[in-house]
Write a protein that binds this DNA or RNA. Structure first.
Lengths: 219, 219
DNA sequence: CACTTGACAGTACAAGTGTTTGCTTTATAA
DNA sequence: TTATAAAGCAAACACTTGTACTGTCAAGTG
């Protein structure tokens, strides 16, 4: 079984391993590193396949040199641009019962900073994004569990289909739902497709922000 | 005679040599390379000065590893990762029906890199973490929806309570559940507390990895 | 069928390489 | 000067690691 570039399964495997190893450690693996981690029974098999990889110019090798494998173009990698770090402040806790904290009230500079994937809070709209820690299981219907981080963008209105944090005035409760304005009523649709929507009037709700992301850390 | 950063002439010399060697060859010099080219009379002198360079954090070394010298920043440049950002490769798609891709099989260096919160894939355990894009609504009971990113750590076993990606052999299906070994059976508990667990035998399941995080981007 | 070829296994060896030990020299300060 | 530490020297040692050699096995091929 060969892949597109004429490498066997094992050769692809070895090549991927070398790249990964090199990225992590900063130096190339020894033949025995490859053998052990890839569960290959003999060093000679690795040597055999390395020779083929060298012939096909997927790797470079210097004879007899320990860990002398080099990847073509390795020097080019040095030119890659550093990624930008994005952080947002963790401003508090969100539960079903209590209202959200007002971002304006909190000294953002003092809050714990959370690192988030770049595309969740990028561009000119980055300002105004903050995080809240979810407490309790009340947001199960939004596919959000106890302990999750919810990323919110401060905004008082919403377009149809956007997930928003809304406060229902007559229940005095906060929920996360998809927002749909339908005539003179509002449909609040749980993210969980198996669950039923809530209908209410625009006067009964207050949009507290838009949900731009959810981060669940089980590590 | 000491230079500005407290290095002796010989240490400066060695450091410069390592940089040059690295730039030309793509891998680090052996102690004897340094010794010969710098006309140092003994390998122990080189070892002695390398130890000092390591203490002053001018170089990094992995004990006992041939040519295991690394330059600080080299790792980052090579992988294009700035210090505070963590990225993991996006290796494919996860659905209910199809098996997970084998991380070893994929050319990790070629995969799209996803930026993740630092604490999800940090420290020495960073290796082996990869991301899969969820397709379909089959993982609603794990509070995971279509389009979410699941971060997995490659591991063949699990402790009780950990969320794992398991393959049920008789269904030929992959699900994400909390794992509990109870006597001679296994309980697979959905993350959604309102849903019922599955019971099966250890022989019927294959642990494909541990779920370390979930990222949902609604931006 | 005999013959070849590609791929892998197991083992052994030799070269590559980091480390240690004991000793000598040089520098520095009391 | 003498004591002390730093730096260098030389050789031996032990682990690391690339390579070679001998087989095995399955899939062609004439």
């Amino acid at each position: 079984m060969r892949s597109a570039d004429g490498l066997s399964h094992r050769q692809e495997q070895i090549l991927a391993y070398i790249r990964k190893f090199w990225g992590e450690k900063g130096y190339a693996p020894a033949i025995r590193d490859i053998q052990k981690d890839l569960h290959i029974s003999s060093t000679s098999v690795v040597a055999y396949n390395l020779k083929i990889l060298e012939q096909k110019e997927k790797i470079l090798r210097d004879d007899k040199i320990s860990r002398g494998i080099t990847l073509p173009g390795a020097l080019l990698l040095n030119t890659s641009l550093p990624a930008t770090v994005h952080t947002v402040p963790l401003l508090g806790v969100i539960t079903a019962g209590s209202p959200l904290p007002d971002p304006e009230d909190i000294a953002v500079a003092d809050a714990e900073q959370i690192e988030v994937p770049a595309d969740m809070a990028d561009g000119e709209q980055m300002s105004g994004v903050y995080a809240l820690r979810v407490r309790g299981h009340s947001m199960i219907d939004a596919l959000i569990d106890d302990g999750d981080l919810v990323l919110l963008r401060n905004q008082p209105t919403a377009d149809n289909g956007q997930m928003v944090a809304v406060r229902l005035l007559d229940d005095n409760a906060v929920t996360l739902k998809k927002f749909y304005h339908e005539g003179d009523r509002v449909r609040l649709q749980p993210a969980n497709v198996t669950m039923e929507p809530i209908y209410t009037s625009p006067e009964n709700l207050q949009i507290q922000g838009r949900v731009v992301g959810v981060i669940r850390n089980l590590g």
